[in-house]
Structure formats: structure tokens, C-alpha cells
Design a protein around this nucleic acid. Structure first.
Lengths: 258, 258
DNA sequence: CGTCTACTTGACCACTATCAACGCTGGTGG
DNA sequence: CCACCAGCGTTGATAGTGGTCAAGTAGACG
């Protein structure tokens, strides 16, 4: 309780010189539109950059008044819905440069909660100011709509995964999805750290924790991956792609020759 | 083949006097915003109302150039994505007054296909004109964004269903979802016709056809529903709600007393 | 050093997919 | 008029994937 209210140093903002959109290395990812310098400054002035959010803290809660969307600067966020029965369903993991909260647009309140998986810094875009700005910058609203429809596409991809794929396929898909997202941000596609717990992964993929654990160990035995707690290395991308059902990536033989 | 190209009478448009937004009984559902009479006329003039789409015909196909969104006037549509592996996943069933094609916004092409489940009439909203009109009518774009974010919410609900619920629960959820949507349109919430086949239902719910069939017959034995091929009647809404995980609707005892 | 949580591993079994056969219905052609 | 067929739906038998339960291990932290 008290640790929520204790003052927190502006860690990221002080260490990080990217406190302006114009200098932010993520700007090409978060809202990749060609903005005039003046527009960029307007956008910039509107953004609230609060203190970092600690692991486990909520960015917003299902039912909260919808009054801002967020762009993640550093860290990672999970979003999840809570059913009437109390079950939680993680609907997505969000990495740096991604927008969170767009689904709030349909109503006055957020239809899901967002929780930090690790210490996270965000750019808060207050809704009223964003609205006003959208009226001035023609491309901006369209860009936001693109983001929304991109999220629809992604969710529908996930529906396919959940309803048609085996546990192995889902796992491979999950790892490769993360991989490509890290790569897009300039990180290694083959080695990264899982910000989320096994429980989170299992929840997201619609599996039991035990199943996730078993699959990861089996993948290791098959030399598809290597893990050391949360650090993960993808050793055999073609095979993983084949598992995930990507026929374009040439699957090597089931038994790779030595 | 040839039946696709043969001339089709303008069935619905000729029989149906609602050829204008201002007289359309669905207008309050499809884009429920307060529009000036003049704006309504502008919107109206932009809409292309083509010939009815026959059962099995495509409204648009995954990969087609994204150049319009559609509002369903009469009939029903299923939308589905095709994975690289060829598997199809039905992502939604769309009834009269609902918008289809919004997920195209994120790119130049539709990320899914839309097929008529029965003879269907639609209002086509060409994208370029819609865009132009959005710049003039402030509320319109917001309304479309609401629709999009509503679809996100819906898809995320579906993710929860697919990953956390048993076959019975999914079935109950599906029936109740349809029920409430019919009710919203002024039809009976208790008796309606399933426009989709059992195969479609099973695909949508991530189940085998046999499972769907078995559950429906069991629901009948339990006197939860009555079916006659595609006609369906919900006999015990409280119990169905309980099954679907709606704790608010009082579940009667598991065995209802005689 | 003890406690807590996260993760792993094993044994068992339930849910639901799969395979197979059959019934029903509507359309087609003899 | 009836035989035939195709598509859709139902029902039964069987088996497999992945969930559940239970116990144990490993890290993190006070």
C-alpha cells in the first residue's frame, strides 16, 4: 500500500534523454506518420510523462473512466479482461512503442485492465487533447484508426490460434511473435527476456501452466530453444516456424541431421 | 459459375422502401449519431446500394483492396480469416445493422473474407467518400472509431471464451449472444433462426461439428432449448445464463423441480 | 535461514477430437 | 414416380491432448 504512494525518482526520464517526441527513437514505431516539426511539438507538449510504473502496478483498471491512451516508452505491459465469473484473460502483451488503451473508445470506461510486468515508463496522451489535436492534424486520427484496426487483426489472429492450434503450435507462435517484435525494435530476434511469468503465458495461450512448462522443457530437449529462467534463446527458427504453421519458412527435416 | 453472373432482380431494394438513411429503421443502430438532415442526405447520397448478395457469395475477399466498409441491411454475413496453412477461422457473424470491413483500415487490403450466409443486402460506404465526409461531420469519425473499438472488445471477449470456457459454456454464450442481438433489433430474444450451419458454429466456437451437434441435442433433453433444424427456441434463459457464466441472472437449481 | 512464490515434474483422467456409420432433405434425371 | 446422390446433421465408439491434482525444486527476499 504505502509503497504505492512513496515518492519514486524519475528514473527513466532522468537517465533517458528522449523526453521529446522529436528525439525519441520510438517515434517511428508508435505513430509512424510524417509530422511537421510544429505538429510534433504540439504533440509533444500534450504528452504527460509521469513517474515510472512499478512492476505489478496498474496503468488503468477495467471500469476506470477512459480519458487517455498510452504509448509505452520502456518496459512491458499486460492487458487483461476480467469476466463476470472472475476469470482473467490476458488479451495482450505490449512492448515499448506500442499503444495501449485504444479499446476504450467504444464507451466511457476501459473494457480491460493494464498492469506493468516490469518497471515501465509511458507517454500518456490525454483523450481530450488528443481529440482536439486530431482535428488539426489530418493524418493523426487515421493513424490511430490504423492502430485500432491493427489490434482487431491481431486479436483475430489470436482467435485462430486459440481455437485451431495445438499447445505446441501456440507456444511456437508465441515465441516467434515476441521474436519478431523485438527484432522490429532493433533487438536480437534470437535471444531475449520474457517479461511475463509462465502463468501469464499460459493464461494468454489458453493452456495450463504445467503444459507451458512441459512444452518449454521439451523444446529444449529438441534443441529448438534454450532457456535460463526468463532468458530465452531461439536455436532453430526454421523448425519453430514450421511448428507455428508458417510454411514459407522452410521446415528442416523433423530430425535434423548431424 | 454462371449463376454468379446472371442478372439478379433488385429484390430487396424494390420490395423495401427503406432506401434512404433517413427512413431506414436501422439507422439508429448502424451509426447511432445525431446527424443534421443535410448531413444525413450527404451520407445517403454516398452509399452504394447494389444488388442483393446471394448465399455463398463473397462481399469481399481476404487480400482484396480495401476500399469500402459495409453496413448490413438485411441478411447475415460471416467473416473469416484464412491462415497460411489453409485453415479457416470464422471471426464473427454479422447481422442487419452491423458494420463489416473495419479491420481493413490498418492496411491496404482486407485481412479477412466476408461471405453471405443467406441472401443479403448491404449499404456500401466507399472509403474515399467516407474519409472526405468524416472531415466534414465531426461525430462521424468518432462513431466509426467506436465501432472499431467495440469490435476489439468483442474479439477479446471471444478470446476469453475460446481459451477458458468449456464446450457447453461456449454454446450457451453463443446462443445468448445471438439472442441479445436479435432482441436489440426488435426480434424475439427467445426464438430465432440460425443463419449459419453447424459447421460454421463449430468453427467459430473452436469445437468439432460433432460436439456442437451433441451439445444441442443434450440441451434439448435438458429442456434448455428446442430446435427444429435451424429454428431455435430458448426455453430456459436463466439456466443458459448460468451456464454461460452470467452470475447476475439467477441460476435455478441444476435440476429444476417439477 | 526460513518463507514465499514461481517453476518443474509426475501420475491420472476428463473433455473433446477423430473416425465411422447412418439418417434426413432437397435436387436431378431416369 | 422413384432411384440416386450430395450436403448437412446426428449418433456411437475410441483415443489423444491437455487439464487437474499432488509433490518437489529453485530462486528471491526479509
Amino acid at each position: 500500500m504505502s509503497k504505492d504512494t512513496q515518492p519514486v525518482p524519475f528514473l527513466a526520464t532522468s537517465k533517458n534523454s528522449q523526453t521529446h517526441c522529436s528525439t525519441c527513437s520510438l517515434s517511428s514505431l508508435c505513430l509512424p506518420i510524417a509530422l511537421e516539426k510544429a505538429d510534433l511539438d504540439t504533440l509533444d507538449s500534450m504528452i504527460k510523462r509521469g513517474r515510472p510504473i512499478q512492476k505489478g502496478e496498474l496503468l488503468f483498471k477495467q471500469g476506470d473512466a477512459f480519458n487517455a491512451i498510452f504509448a509505452i516508452r520502456t518496459g512491458a505491459i499486460k492487458t487483461y479482461t476480467v469476466a463476470a465469473s472472475g476469470e482473467e484473460q490476458i488479451t495482450g502483451f505490449h512492448l515499448a512503442s506500442e499503444l495501449v488503451g485504444l479499446s476504450g473508445y467504444s464507451q466511457e470506461t476501459y473494457p480491460l485492465s493494464a498492469k506493468a510486468l516490469e518497471t515501465t515508463t509511458v507517454c500518456e496522451l490525454p483523450l481530450d487533447q488528443l481529440e482536439a489535436m486530431c482535428d488539426e492534424i489530418p493524418g493523426l486520427r487515421k493513424q490511430i484508426m490504423r492502430n485500432m484496426s491493427g489490434e482487431i487483426r491481431q486479436d483475430q489472429q489470436m482467435m485462430l490460434q486459440l481455437s485451431k492450434k495445438s499447445a505446441d503450435e501456440r507456444m511456437a507462435y508465441f515465441l516467434l511473435d515476441l521474436s519478431s517484435r523485438f527484432e522490429r525494435r532493433g533487438f536480437s530476434a534470437k535471444a531475449f527476456r520474457l517479461a511475463m511469468s509462465r502463468v501469464d503465458i499460459s493464461n494468454y495461450l489458453g493452456l495450463a501452466v504445467e503444459t507451458v512448462s512441459r512444452i518449454l522443457t521439451r523444446f529444449q530437449k529438441q534443441e529448438l530453444i534454450a532457456t535460463q529462467s526468463k532468458e530465452i534463446t531461439l536455436l532453430n527458427l526454421p523448425e519453430l516456424n514450421a511448428l507455428a504453421g508458417h510454411p514459407d519458412a522452410q521446415p528442416t527435416c523433423q530430425q535434423h541431421p548431424n
